[in-house]
Computed example of a mutant assay.
Amino acid sequence: MEAFLVSTGIVALGEMGDKTQLLAMLLAARFRKPLPIMLGIFVATLANHAMAGAVGQWVAEAIGPQWMRWIIGGSFLAMAIWMLIPDKIDEDDADAKSLRLGVFGTTVLAFFLAEMGDKTQIATVALAARYTDFFAVVAGTTLGMMLANVPAIYLGDRIARGVSMKLVHSISAGIFAVLGVLTLLGIDRFF
């Protein structure tokens, strides 16, 4: 349960103000069809995070536990720093080949590509390497993505104006920093 809860919380906070959240807002404004956008985000996230989780599990098995502790701890600390760097959406992500693919297809393609190498994908790799429960990590990171993006679809930029992204990113950075330090210290249980 810890893997699921930590994964959900980290990604939900980490996605606030992220380029994929901005992409969700853009797609919602452009197409005004929330259901296919939500389903597209879900499918793209599940596929992307399942791949990232598999990489994390493979890395954990391929590297010994001592090295793994240092790599994961360092990764969490690097994520803490990365969280403090604001994201912006790329024009290419927002203007995918939308009409040929439809709303659902455009969303799947745009989100899948936008998540490649993104903070949440890297976090999923680290979380899957840290925890042994692949399904809990992938389910948690996917739920975290949905928790951050579904409201963005419905509320658009009202969210962006009403929530301090700097505060949210600072909280996320703090969580990653704590996870990094606890991992480096060899503390296995967080709750």
Rank of each mutant, 00 (worst) to 15 (best):
M38Q: 08
H169C: 10
L185D: 06
D92F: 11
W70Q: 08
V125C: 07
Y154G: 09
D87S: 13
I37W: 00
W82P: 04
I63R: 05
V59N: 09
T107I: 12
I41M: 03
Q121P: 05
L184Y: 04
M68W: 09
L22Q: 03
I85C: 08
S164E: 15
M16A: 10
F104Q: 06
G144N: 05
L167C: 10
P36C: 13
I171F: 02
F191C: 07
I10K: 01
A80D: 04
A47P: 02
A3M: 07
A44C: 11
L99W: 09
T124A: 07
L35F: 11
Y131L: 12
Y131C: 07
F76W: 05
A110G: 04
G144M: 04
D18K: 01
R189C: 06
F111Q: 06
S98K: 13
V181R: 02
G56P: 06
V125S: 05
M83F: 14
V6G: 02
L109H: 11
L84E: 12
V178Q: 01
G174W: 01
M68R: 15
G14S: 08
A114Y: 02
D133A: 12
V125T: 04
V150Y: 01
D18I: 03
I71Y: 05
G140T: 03
G156F: 04
I81W: 15
G105D: 11
G17Q: 03
G9Q: 14
T106Q: 08
T8A: 10
K88F: 11
M79K: 03
A177N: 01
A50S: 14
V59K: 07
A148C: 11
T183W: 01
L46D: 03
V103K: 00
F112G: 08
A3I: 07
F4H: 07
I175V: 14
P65C: 10
Q21M: 08
L39C: 08
G102H: 06
A173C: 00
W82Q: 09
L84M: 15
R130C: 15
A60F: 04
V59S: 08
A62F: 11
A44M: 14
F42V: 10
V137T: 13
L39P: 00
Q121K: 08
Q57S: 13
Y154S: 05
M25I: 15
G64P: 07
V59C: 12
V103H: 01
L26Q: 12
L143I: 06
A12T: 11
D133G: 12
P34W: 12
V43Y: 05
A47H: 05
F76P: 01
V11I: 15
G186E: 09
A28P: 04
L185F: 09
A50D: 08
L23K: 00
R189S: 10
V43G: 02
I63V: 15
A78P: 06
G9E: 12
D90F: 15
V181Q: 00
T142H: 02
K119P: 00
I159A: 09
